Computed example of a mutant assay.
Amino acid sequence: MHAEKRVRVDSSDVRSSYSHGSIVTSGRLIGFCIEFSPKIIRH
């Protein structure tokens, strides 16, 4: 019973950390696109 609960908590922790990581990555990508887009528009 205890082991099962621990596994559930771990999986939820991994999921939350993964979602946070993806949000950070997408934020960086958006920032990079905004930084890079003026150069593309100038072309």
Rank of each mutant, 00 (worst) to 15 (best):
1 M>F: 10
1 M>Y: 09
1 M>T: 12
1 M>E: 13
1 M>G: 14
2 H>Y: 07
2 H>C: 04
2 H>E: 12
2 H>F: 09
3 A>C: 05
3 A>T: 15
3 A>D: 14
4 E>N: 12
4 E>C: 06
5 K>I: 08
6 R>C: 01
6 R>V: 15
6 R>K: 11
6 R>L: 13
6 R>F: 09
6 R>G: 01
7 V>A: 06
7 V>Q: 04
7 V>D: 01
7 V>S: 00
7 V>W: 01
7 V>N: 05
8 R>L: 07
8 R>C: 00
11 S>F: 06
11 S>A: 07
11 S>L: 14
11 S>H: 00
12 S>P: 02
12 S>Q: 11
13 D>H: 05
13 D>M: 05
13 D>A: 04
13 D>R: 03
14 V>R: 05
16 S>I: 11
16 S>N: 10
16 S>R: 12
16 S>V: 08
17 S>W: 02
18 Y>N: 08
18 Y>W: 06
18 Y>S: 10
19 S>P: 00
20 H>F: 09
20 H>M: 11
21 G>H: 04
22 S>F: 12
23 I>E: 09
24 V>D: 07
25 T>Y: 05
26 S>W: 08
26 S>P: 01
26 S>M: 13
26 S>C: 10
26 S>F: 11
27 G>L: 02
27 G>Y: 02
27 G>I: 03
29 L>E: 06
29 L>G: 04
29 L>V: 11
30 I>A: 06
31 G>D: 10
31 G>A: 14
31 G>N: 09
31 G>H: 05
31 G>Y: 01
32 F>W: 13
32 F>C: 02
33 C>N: 04
33 C>T: 08
33 C>F: 09
33 C>K: 03
34 I>F: 07
34 I>Q: 02
35 E>G: 15
35 E>D: 15
35 E>F: 15
35 E>V: 12
36 F>K: 14
36 F>P: 01
37 S>Q: 11
37 S>N: 09
37 S>V: 13
37 S>P: 00
37 S>L: 15
37 S>F: 15
38 P>R: 02
38 P>D: 03
38 P>S: 06
40 I>D: 03
41 I>H: 04
41 I>G: 01
41 I>Q: 06
41 I>Y: 11
42 R>T: 09
42 R>P: 02
42 R>L: 15
42 R>C: 07
43 H>D: 14
43 H>P: 01
43 H>K: 14
43 H>W: 12
43 H>I: 08
